[in-house]
Design a protein around this nucleic acid. Structure first.
Lengths: 364, 364
DNA sequence: TTCCTATATTCAAACGTTTGAATTGGTTGC
DNA sequence: GCAACCAATTCAAACGTTTGAATATAGGAA
């Protein structure tokens, strides 16, 4: 076992052991075009020796020389949000065939961490960046530092096309409408609505969709049944928010037969509150969520929700950046892309037809 | 904006712009010991220019030269298992102060992906590896390739001390005992038990703990109420497994007032099945889980479970590897470590006292 | 023989850093 | 006035690859 001072086997070690030059070894092992000129015997000898010595090419040296890191940074705002995982895995699936290494980073909803990672992305010469966004970061540095370095970016969950950044979003308006329409179709008229926090860009369009669907269904939304989540800086994920909002709702005078929650975690909080108050879901009150995250799938009753095609979106984002890397290598400048993914209603067990016409009321 | 052919600003660019040598620039910007000798004026000029040009050191060149990657690989068997996330975040927290970059990799329960990432870890010259294990991988390559390269390893969830790998485990036996004792204390006598899949190393000790606690409590375990999960190669996470197991249980003749599930996801599946059969939790049947993952916390009723201090374990693992890196740099060889983390019973709402003495029985 | 082509291999420079050793001037000590 | 020192800076080699150009060897055609 030959070992050099660095502790790793290098091309030089192999070259010496084979009695040939470093170049030859490199050509053979990296399967360069020239390698078809290398004598079959030599080729085999080199390969054998590399295997025998346990050689692994040094990614740093290689990237330095090739000026390609074969790396794509994936910056998620918080991995502990179950929302992120399918996206990340989708991205991973998309990247694998091209053998890019996803450099997965978790900002843990901390602005400072986020900036730190941004710096690292630059230093590690990531060839592209995919950002899974939330309200945590103003886009300032992102634009200033990364785009300046001509690295393709895709941002998921935010429209930054006017800053020339490829953006991928869910059609929140359509989703919000779907959710409301579902409840209305089930006969609900007194529907409580928990809106998302103001800072979150999903909140407004989703609310707009809800209003639009209400108008279309001829249902009037009782202002007193509309609440807004506070800005969830902590890791409460909306569960806590939903819990508190629903408690407030239950304490109020207004009756309701259904709750349209901002997202699944909120919905789960709502269900907890309803349960505390002795109201069962969906018999006494229907609850609908948004996102279709794991906890909503495995809860009982399963949460009716608006599914986001997260895996597909991740895959798409990966495809985009890889295409753009190619395009930029060719010297041309691609168009800025914008896509609204279409959500889908997923009826599970947390919603049902309204009891009678509205007789079953709020009190515990 | 000076740009070189590589598209990135280098030390040379700054040197030229400042009219000094690359060395000086390097010394200033990397705050080498020598930098105290550099004239204050020069220092300022260089810094200013670096900022102005948007310089970011090339991590590849730097690592190559310094022979340190400042990188620690974190290889998780599957990020979509909510179990992994707190571990990962704990590791992250531990690594941050030392400014190591966690190279987060998600094997997605695929053996091939796992091997691929292992290779990349070697090529990227990670200074240490933390593996969040499951039954997916035989430890073969892990030992053969990584340890051979003298890279410190910590494995979480498996005892590989005999192969000289630092191991961190949960005390499954104690945990299993806790869970059973809790149910017994609540007056349950007819307790169904869903054991973990055979390949999972947690399964055996957990079961042993259960048996031991049963003996101690003077409760006999009815063999006919003991089921085992199949090997969950797919992403079903035990939810599906728990669902099916509980259905089988319910279809059987044996009555039971409580179910001790292998883990939280299993417990959630069990609850779904019970609900299908019209049995309520915890009134008609208590259910206890294991792990304390997010879905168990936000479900209603909240799942009583055996909490694993995952965040702390991750933190600890990070500390270990960083210490070992230091130790090995000093030339000495550290001892192989083994630690059993202590679980903790977390009583929530899915368990309650047995109704009467066992009158409430199985039928739907 | 000489020139040509093809095959097999090597040279040497480059990628962007870091760093031990060397080089400048300019003081100071004696 | 010369050695000796200091501060400020630079040289040059090295990290481990890759790769365009160069070289060497051989077989064949002229």
């Amino acid at each position: 076992m030959v070992q050099r001072r660095s502790g790793h086997v290098t091309l030089l070690d192999i070259a010496r052991a084979c009695g040939c030059s470093v170049s030859t070894v490199s050509i053979v092992l990296s399967e360069a075009p020239l390698s078809k000129n290398v004598a079959a015997a030599t080729r085999e000898r080199v390969r054998e020796m590399a295997r025998h010595l346990g050689y692994h090419p040094d990614a740093y040296a290689r990237s330095l020389r090739r000026r390609r890191s074969q790396t794509i940074a994936v910056l998620a705002y918080d991995l502990s949000d179950p929302f992120c995982i399918p996206l990340v895995q989708g991205i991973q699936s998309g990247l694998k065939p091209a053998s890019y290494l996803p450099l997965l980073m978790d900002a843990q909803t901390k602005r400072k961490l986020f900036d730190n990672y941004l710096r690292m992305i630059l230093e590690r010469r990531a060839e592209a960046v995919i950002v899974i966004a939330s309200w945590i970061f103003e886009e300032t540095n992102l634009l200033a530092d990364i785009e300046k370095n001509k690295v393709p970016i895709v941002i998921i969950g935010r429209d930054l096309t006017e800053k020339k950044i490829n953006s991928m979003l869910i059609d929140n308006q359509a989703g919000g409408a779907m959710a409301f329409t579902h409840l209305a179709t089930m006969g609900h008229r007194r529907i409580a609505i928990i809106r998302g926090p103001e800072e979150l860009l999903d909140s407004a369009p989703r609310w707009k969709g809800v209003q639009q669907a209400a108008a279309q269904a001829g249902v009037v939304i009782d202002e007193r049944l509309v609440l807004q989540l506070p800005s969830l800086t902590d890791s409460a994920f909306g569960f806590e928010g939903g819990l508190r909002a629903a408690r407030k709702l239950l304490a109020g005078k207004q009756s309701f037969t259904a709750v349209l929650a901002f997202d699944d975690m909120t919905a789960l909080g709502v269900i907890r509150a309803l349960s505390e108050a002795g109201r069962r879901v969906p018999e006494d009150c229907s609850v609908i969520g948004f996102d279709d995250v794991l906890p909503a799938r495995v809860a009982t009753p399963g949460i009716t929700t608006v599914h986001q095609p997260l895996h597909e979106m991740g895959l798409q984002a990966a495809t985009w950046v890889m295409e753009e890397i190619k395009v930029r290598q060719a010297g041309t400048q691609g168009r800025v892309r914008l896509e609204y993914a279409q959500p889908e209603l997923l009826v599970r067990a947390s919603t049902t037809r309204a009891a009678e016409d509205g007789k079953r009321q709020s009190q515990a």
